[in-house]
């Protein structure tokens, strides 16, 4: 099962390598990893999506906690949370199919963020599942390039 884990870490040099190294050395599978600043300047949040059974997840969270630079580890799968992925999708769409494409983008609440004679760039912010569906629907138009972030997540409620 996939788990979304949030890790708050000291923003120290090497901390990303430490976390990535932990996953590779122990053979855990990372589906995605996203890093960014938090509301506190010297703390970063890593959102890691990892695949594994409960036993592996227990080890993953313990091992992450054990790292000296780790402040807090949350396995969101056990609580209410909101998660989003961002994708930028470039489509080389013939002009005559554009209305159809734009309709599709609208249905999926995407945004056209760039238009040129040969290409349309679409921005979609969605959950991972939905994003997958959108991409499948866009494929027939001819996806030239795609760039995606990993999942980022935040818990619901006060804190």
């Amino acid at each position: 099962m996939k788990h979304t884990i949030s890790v708050l870490v000291e923003n120290q040099p090497g901390v990303l390598a430490r976390i990535a190294g932990l996953f590779s050395a122990r053979g855990y599978n990372i589906t995605s990893l996203a890093v960014g600043e938090t509301e506190i300047a010297d703390i970063s949040r890593m959102t890691i999506v990892v695949d594994g059974d409960n036993r592996i997840l227990e080890q993953v969270t313990k091992q992450l906690n054990k790292l000296v630079d780790t402040l807090k580890v949350n396995d969101f799968t056990r609580e209410k949370y909101i998660a989003r992925d961002l994708a930028l999708i470039k489509i080389n769409c013939e002009t005559k199919r554009r209305p159809e494409l734009l309709e599709m983008v609208k249905v999926f609440r995407g945004k056209v963020i760039d238009l040129s004679p040969k290409a349309v760039i679409i921005e979609v912010v969605e959950t991972e599942d939905k994003l997958k569906a959108i991409i499948e629907n866009l494929r027939p138009f001819g996806i030239a390039e795609m760039s995606r972030t990993g999942t980022i997540a935040i818990s619901r409620g006060k804190k």
Binding site: P13, G14, A17, R18, G21, A25, V68
Partner: peptide
């Protein structure tokens, strides 16, 4: 050195 020894130490530092 910190890269090489990261996984064989409890922790390591480079002083900057």
């Amino acid at each position: 050195t910190t890269g090489v020894t990261r996984s064989i130490t409890k922790h390591n530092f480079m002083v900057r």
